[in-house]
Design a protein around this nucleic acid. Structure first.
Lengths: 201, 201
DNA sequence: AACGCATGTTACCGATCGGTAACATTGAGG
DNA sequence: CCTCAATGTTACCGATCGGTAACATGCGTT
């Protein structure tokens, strides 16, 4: 055993580089970290970094893709842990959202990347847009499955609350408006559930 | 008249520099613009910039203060245009908020600055925190004056929605969740107006 | 043992960064 | 007119940036 066949992408330095970039980008921002710093933090060097990622922009894209993969895992866990129980799934989403809000006050890595990647045609920006749209749509599907009539509107509202809470946690501190995220989200969900229109058949 | 007395701080290059920094920081981010570029855009040079602002961080602080001053003007206009009519004032705030959301998709300059200024003790960061807290408190006072019982909670909810809408406008595009900001905000205001102190029975 | 590939090491490149020194120019007020 | 402060101009500094070339080393495979 020991090492993988060369046909499979090498796992060792590449993963470490992405992990190091993930933490450094999160803490200091994308433009606040140089590739040399990332390579050092990954226990490797700049040349190896550039052999795996042709440019810093490529590394940024891989960084965003890594976050996307974790999001995918999240949705799968939500579905797996509460099979055929969309109500519990929505509750799980809410708990994870609250976790994101009260994490460390550095906001959402995807949103922060969008702030720093000011070129509108940056590939990572397009991916971020797709990821954010995906998240909203899956949340809307979850709301629909949970029996909410106006599931799209509820998903939009919850998305706004979550994104707002994460940025408020960063700009206004722990005791700011983000502290009310859970209460507000719950009461909005309740108000949507109370509303009429065709419920399930 | 020509020029001002030297005792008064010179207004000409300084204002132009701040104006240029305002636009460039907004479009390309703080770390994405060099002081030389700002000086050029202001029709002056780097030396003059450094005579008015001892460092780029000083300029950043002045940039945030300028945004703060505009916010102050906004609140004064809201109060002046609808004297003794908090309902109309809240409506005015809502309209201006909607204007912010659908502006140009670059998000909130204050929030973006907080993303880029990763050093927690940066003076501009502390000012941003104070400004965001101020905004929330004034909005809460407005809600209270408008007869909303749980004015603090409503202000928090509206703040979350607004901040979320601005970041969603940036990350998910014009047709994303931010498009529902107005509807959601209005319906939340209504739901708060509907229930008095005690929760709904 | 010999090969080959991934990785490590060192040095370097041009560009740009924030910031400064020295000097020339301007223009208003005494 | 002369003074003086603000501004403009040029050149420069050390540091860091993203990115590359050339070469050395390790190590698994055959």
């Amino acid at each position: 055993m020991g090492r993988e066949t060369p046909s499979v992408a090498g796992i060792r330095p590449r993963e470490r580089i992405i992990a190091a970039a993930r933490e450094l980008f999160h803490r200091h921002g994308i433009r606040g970290v140089g590739v040399d710093t990332i390579a050092d933090a990954a226990g490797t060097n700049k040349m190896t970094l550039y052999r795996h990622f042709g440019s810093k922009d490529d590394l940024i894209l891989a960084y965003v893709k890594t976050i996307a993969a974790e999001g995918e895992v999240m949705w799968q866990e939500i579905a797996r842990d509460h099979p055929a129980d969309p109500q519990a799934q929505l509750e799980d989403w809410l708990a994870r959202a609250e976790g994101c809000v009260s994490e460390d006050g550095r906001g959402c890595d995807l949103a922060n990347a969008a702030v720093e990647l000011t070129e509108a045609d940056h590939p990572a920006r397009r991916l971020i847009e797709q990821l954010k749209t995906d998240h909203r749509n899956r949340l809307a599907a979850l709301c629909h499955a949970a029996g909410v009539a106006q599931s799209e509107e509820l998903a939009d509202a919850l998305t706004l609350l979550l994104e707002g809470a994460r940025v408020c946690r960063m700009t206004a501190g722990r005791k700011g408006p983000s502290a009310e995220f859970m209460h507000t989200a719950r009461s909005i969900i309740q108000s949507f559930k109370a509303k009429p229109k065709a419920k399930r058949k």
